[in-house]
Write a protein that binds this DNA or RNA. Sequence first.
DNA 1: TCTGGGGTCCTAGGACCC
DNA 2: TCTGGGGTCCTAGGACCC
Length: 407
Amino acid sequence: MSAACILHADLDAFFASVEQRDDPALRGRPVLVGGGVVLAASYEARACGVRSAMGGGKARRLCPQAIVVPPRFSAYVQASKDVFAIFAETAPTVEAVSIDEAFLDVRGLERIGGTPEAIARRLRRTVRAQVGLPISVGVASTKHLAKVASNAAKPDGLLAIAPGAELAFLHPLPVGRLWGVGPATETRLREHGIVTVGQLAGLPEGVLVTILGRAAGRKLHAISHNRDPRRVRAGHTRRSIGSQSALGSRRRTPEELDAVAIALVDRVTRRLRKGGRVGRTVVLRLRFGDFTRATRSKTLPRPTAATAPVLVTLRALLAAERETIRRRGITLLGISITNLSRSSDAGVQLELAVDGQPPPALDATMDAIRDRYGAGALQRATLLGGRERTSAWLMPGDGPDGLPESR
DNA sequence: TCTGGGGTCCTAGGACCC
DNA sequence: TCTGGGGTCCTAGGACCC
């Protein structure tokens, strides 16, 4: 049995707690952050049944005495940085999960830091003293169990699952408490008479795969037996960058939609450039008048972070949906860019004259590239040009195994 | 309850290639 | 006339998370 050495630390009702910290008049009272949709609800508000992502109307009906405050994202970002600085002093390996939670690997710290549980207790005290926020911590032998434990410890608690006690803790829980089991999976499992994690654990993996598909079936089978080999890993590479805008129910003209599209592309490509990233696939996200959703995507020949090619692509995708939008109405327009790589891996476009030779001039182009950049530089070249001139796209990180992975 | 914004991963079919 | 197996990439959609 492996030692319980993974901490999952999760700030409680994060946005709402920052508001209560910064305004004493809010302490001990139900607080909702965000009016249209609840971004965060304090535990006093949750006692009335309010949940985050709930519509503001329903939240106010459930909790008429709640105080509604607008979000202050810069304050949350600063609070998050302060807390992550404490994480970094607590453990050598910290894996951020989101703005308000992280895994900490405290293996091998026994002599200087004490037991994992002692480290967790000290972490909670330090965050409370230095940042003024409540934080819950779960301690367990696997990431998944640490996550479930921190959830069970909330609010403002600590729960350490002793080695050997894992399944006794896990098996009585309803399946919905597992990380990755949402409403759809919960319903499917219930249709098969499975309500608790223990019942889940009693099923052969093959049966679960039949019910839920290969990946989900295997994963749930493993975690129901507390098998989770994932290590705590620092760093994390973003796979997509996106932006979206809710449009309300009013009809929109194509001109209005185009203005929204321009703003979205501008926002997203700026973020790409700021992060030194380029992307190849442009995804259009639509939500229609009846709130059903659709996505349309187009993969470009080369990755880019430039506004123009992304806008051209998004406009083309949008134009193809124009009739559908006219018929059904549109309530959300979004874009996301995926297939990301680093700008430094994106290569340079080479335009090389090859003495008017007709294709196949690619060999000559590749030879010219090798002459110029060295034999190792060229992994793959794509013929882009015409008869008299040949262009090649040089991708330094683009090996035979496909597109460059970001490092 | 009429519903924000930002993400991740998985599945499945078709195109295309060897 | 009938018709393999394997792999990658692209597209679209679904589920889930914070």
